[in-house]
């Protein structure tokens, strides 16, 4: 493909990234660096602030005033609260699956692929994309949740009872290293498309058209990184290495979720997430 075509593809995917994902890397960066003109997130750093803040976890774009005058919900025992927060975060994850699906459908050629293959590409790619999407929402001290309305500290997440305390720490470790790459929104969009269009997922029927699509996106990504980050010639290679880390991270995450399902009697996994995680690894 001509470089003009590759640039057009980058622009198209970047537009789709902005259209489908409510908290982009640039928005998250603004919130984390305090450049949102007084509209700073609610900080959850202990059980008390969790009780107060959990109300917002599943609320899309709650107005600031409403947030400030909110009435605290009745307190729940610590164990119950952890499960209830986990349930709310699951709903957000299910929404994110929808967002990633819409983004995937906007990749030129994706919807023309075999329907069975589209399902497999999403099943295997969606948690990898969501994990990567989480990285810009994190810094070494904590993570944004609920469309940037909440900042939950890393120390607090580590202090939760087992196995909940083990869920986020590997994501922080990945995020801190990933954020060093300093990708921008358009780089992220192309990287997500590369992840989704992986031709080596188990069970794919027609691999060739998937690999062809991925090859074009890879060319667009390589061109873009060379243009936007000329001072970092190794960036493309470094980014591709992250795909291996992501597979391990997702495999560990799925194992932990299966363990949770066994250990927590009250835990109910969202049907969409159940579908995705069943027989995944």
């Amino acid at each position: 493909p001509e470089s003009a075509d590759l640039r057009a593809l980058s622009r198209q995917l970047c537009l789709s990234y902005h259209r489908h994902f409510p908290l982009t890397k640039s928005k998250a960066k603004a919130i984390l660096s305090g450049k949102t003109h007084g509209n700073s997130p609610f900080v959850i750093h202990d059980m008390k602030s969790l009780t107060a803040g959990q109300y917002f976890i599943n609320c899309r774009q709650l107005p600031v005033l409403e947030r400030q005058r909110s009435v605290l919900p009745p307190e729940e025992p610590a164990g119950e609260l952890e499960l209830s927060v986990f349930r709310r975060l699951q709903f957000r994850s299910a929404e994110a699956v929808q967002e990633v699906t819409e983004f995937a459908k906007s990749i030129p050629g994706f919807t023309e692929l075999d329907m069975n293959d589209q399902v497999i590409l999403l099943k295997y790619g969606v948690i990898e994309v969501m994990t990567t999407m989480l990285a810009p929402l994190m810094n070494k001290d904590g993570t944004l949740f609920a469309y940037g309305q909440i900042f939950m500290t890393r120390e607090f997440l580590k202090s939760l009872r087992k196995p909940f305390c083990e869920m986020m720490e590997p994501k922080f470790e990945f995020a801190v290293k990933f954020n060093v790459l300093e990708l921008d929104d358009s780089d992220m969009a192309l990287f997500f498309a590369v992840i989704i269009l992986s031709g080596d997922r188990p069970g794919l029927v027609n691999v060739k058209p998937i690999e062809d699509l991925q090859e074009t996106v890879l060319l667009a990504l390589e061109l873009q990184l060379k243009t936007i980050h000329p001072d970092c010639p190794q960036l493309f290679a470094k980014l591709l290495q992250k795909m291996t880390d992501l597979r391990q991270l997702v495999a560990d995450h799925v194992r932990l979720i299966h363990l949770l399902k066994k250990q927590e009697v009250q835990m109910c996994l969202h049907p969409l997430l159940q579908e995705i995680m069943r027989d995944l690894y």
Partner: peptide, 21 residues
Amino acid sequence: LKEKHKILHRLLQNSTSPVDL
């Protein structure tokens, strides 16, 4: 595969109306 991934399948086919999750 379609039977095991009904919601995912629906999300892929249905682009306009919101899917009841």
